[in-house]
Amino acid sequence: MVPTSYYLILSAMIFAIGAVGVLVRRNALIILMCVEMMLNSVNLTLIALSRQWGNLNGQVFVFMIMAVAAAEVAVGLAILIANTRHRESINIDEIHLLKW
């Protein structure tokens, strides 16, 4: 049986890669994908720990996260499309109106 810590390390690596991706990419779609990846790494952590403690709570959590992630993707993609209609671009650097 593979020790839980291995899974945790793998999860941390995927999380870090996703986070760096969010920060360095400019394509909003790819940023969205990286966010999904980070969520999945957390899912992995939860499931690994669910096994570690012999408790189903973690798996229920993951289920909830999946529901939220699905909702998030649906809304996020809709926002992206609306934004693209507006300014013909999905470059995150051109979405700079948050200071108003």
Partner: peptide
């Protein structure tokens, strides 16, 4: 600091 760019805000959160 408040340049309105989402990545900058994300960076500060990170």
């Amino acid at each position: 600091l408040h340049n309105g760019l989402v990545p900058t805000y994300a960076l500060s959160i990170f």
